[in-house]
């Protein structure tokens, strides 16, 4: 896929994807990056991911705590806050409508 286009798409939804992943359970940066990649969103660099996490923290959508890793350094874990749940629920609906609209248009084009 065109890398520029992929990056553009990602910019609009990365914070939502992070909130969505955190709805499954607490996680830390590198693990989130791996989950995003496993979900097919491509490689997310730390320089892109961590500022997004900081913004989510600053806005109260996630809370954080530090926990020792297995033998490694302490990791910063992120947890979805009640406000984060609200934003996620509301925006997921909006996104579904938006993506559905895009899908309908593109479908129509290829069906011709």
């Amino acid at each position: 896929m065109d890398q520029d286009r992929r990056a553009q798409w990602l910019r609009g939804v990365l914070d939502l994807c992070v909130l969505g992943l955190l709805a499954r359970g607490d996680s830390y940066g590198y693990q989130l990056a791996q989950s995003l990649q496993a979900a097919g969103l491509g490689a997310i660099q730390g320089g892109t991911l961590y500022p997004v996490l900081l913004r989510l923290q600053r806005s109260g959508l996630v809370t954080v705590y530090w926990q020792e890793g297995g033998g490694g350094p302490a990791r910063k874990y992120y947890r979805l806050s009640p406000a984060g749940h609200t934003v996620l629920a509301e925006t997921a609906v909006q996104w579904a409508a938006f993506a559905g609209g895009v899908g309908a248009i593109l479908q129509e084009r290829t069906a011709r």
Partner: peptide
């Protein structure tokens, strides 16, 4: 300090 520690953990993990 937190930002540096988090980046260090990321670099070590990845």
């Amino acid at each position: 300090g937190h930002v540096v520690a988090e980046a260090a953990a990321h670099l070590r993990d990845s």
